[in-house]
Design a protein around this nucleic acid. Structure first.
Lengths: 205, 205
DNA sequence: ATCATTATTTGCCAAATGGCAAATGATAGT
DNA sequence: ACTATCATTTGCCATTTGGCAAATAATGAT
């Protein structure tokens, strides 16, 4: 990227890109040219609290990276209750994989829990990156496998714990998020009622 | 494979291999030569009920494909309770991914719930397949991603359901396995006590 | 067939959690 | 500062689930 062009990027934008590459480079190597090509496809996206990144009934058309804020993935179960499947916080990739990969309608909402700043790639650009950058698919596969394993390791153990233990585990995993996520969302993530979670909080102190 | 050699394979062995390739070919294409190469690395393994396929504290050194029987993956939580994380039944790949990929000690046991027949690949052979067969890594990635997504989709929703609903969902997913898995394992998978599950079974009829 | 062992069911009661509604607290808009 | 709105806490009681122990059933070995 020629020096003369730098001026048009804000400090915040550069910091966000740096966070993105810090994240990516944990999973594999890229040269300067490849990184510039990725950067050339990146757009920024601001999501206000409660806005949707992708929606049930629609096809997910972008891949995102959260630089600020927290998203959650949720759905409605057959009793009509809204269930939070998981939270995704800063410096993580967000994509409704099933929907994005297969171009089928999603059954889940991906929603901003707080105001969010993201870097996003359109489906078209993302596929171009996959076709152009040698080794990019391997990096993406690693990122996605790790994210999936993390989801399994985080939510699934809750099944065998009582409500208090669930909340304690939650606080361990998302210490900085606990105070930014409404109680109702945490309760639905943990599979307890709001009032129970409120009482659990009281008892912990 | 020359005709003269066929005689040394039993009917059962051939059926097992066919099941393996039926499974693999759902995720990508392979030519005859590639399939023969894979087959040349395959060994059969019989596990008796309660035997371990891989163990906590050890490094997982093989990839398996179940042709008959059911395995379970379990661990001990910090209260010392044995928790079944999931079951894996016929026509599925089994590998303790974290341990196998990174050559680190596992924290989980993979144990036969019933007598099992499997096709297995040693770590060495598996890596050779990855290096030799073009496109094999892509197929493996797809298989593994799907398996991980399935785990997320199966166990994680249990968090938000009551005990009876958990069991009903379990029966939907593993209809043919319900009667082959001891109640205690199912109970620990569902996060309920044995006695509760026993009562739930009674009430359902 | 018999016994020993293990798995499952059942009874009894305690503890945890849910359901509902009201009270309190927090927040944003005017 | 004052509402209106939404989020959280609390009280009361019902329901679900757990803990423990004993009874029954199933299984495998001799």
């Amino acid at each position: 990227m020629p020096n003369g062009k730098r001026a048009k990027f804000s400090f915040k934008y550069i910091a966000a890109m740096e966070a993105l590459f810090n994240f990516i480079l944990k999973f594999g190597n890229l040269n300067r040219q490849q990184m510039d090509f990725i950067a050339s496809k990146a757009k920024t996206l601001t999501l206000h609290k409660e806005a949707y990144f992708s929606e049930a009934g629609k096809i997910a058309r972008q891949v995102g990276f959260i630089t600020e804020g927290i998203l959650r993935v949720c759905y409605y179960n057959n009793k009509g209750e809204e269930i939070t499947k998981y939270f995704i916080d800063e410096n993580n990739l967000v994509v409704d994989l099933e929907s994005f990969d297969n171009e089928i309608c999603s059954s889940a909402y991906v929603q901003a829990v707080t105001d969010c700043k993201m870097i996003v790639f359109s489906r078209k650009d993302w596929l171009e990156l996959l076709q152009t950058i040698v080794g990019w698919d391997a990096i993406v596969h690693k990122i996605i496998s790790r994210a999936l394993m993390q989801k399994v390791e985080r939510r699934s153990p809750l099944v065998s714990e009582d409500a208090t233990t669930r909340y304690l585990k939650f606080m361990e995993i998302y210490p900085s998020a606990v105070n930014r996520i409404p109680l109702a969302y945490i309760a639905s993530y943990l599979g307890v009622t709001q009032s129970s979670l409120s009482r659990i909080r009281k008892n912990i102190r």
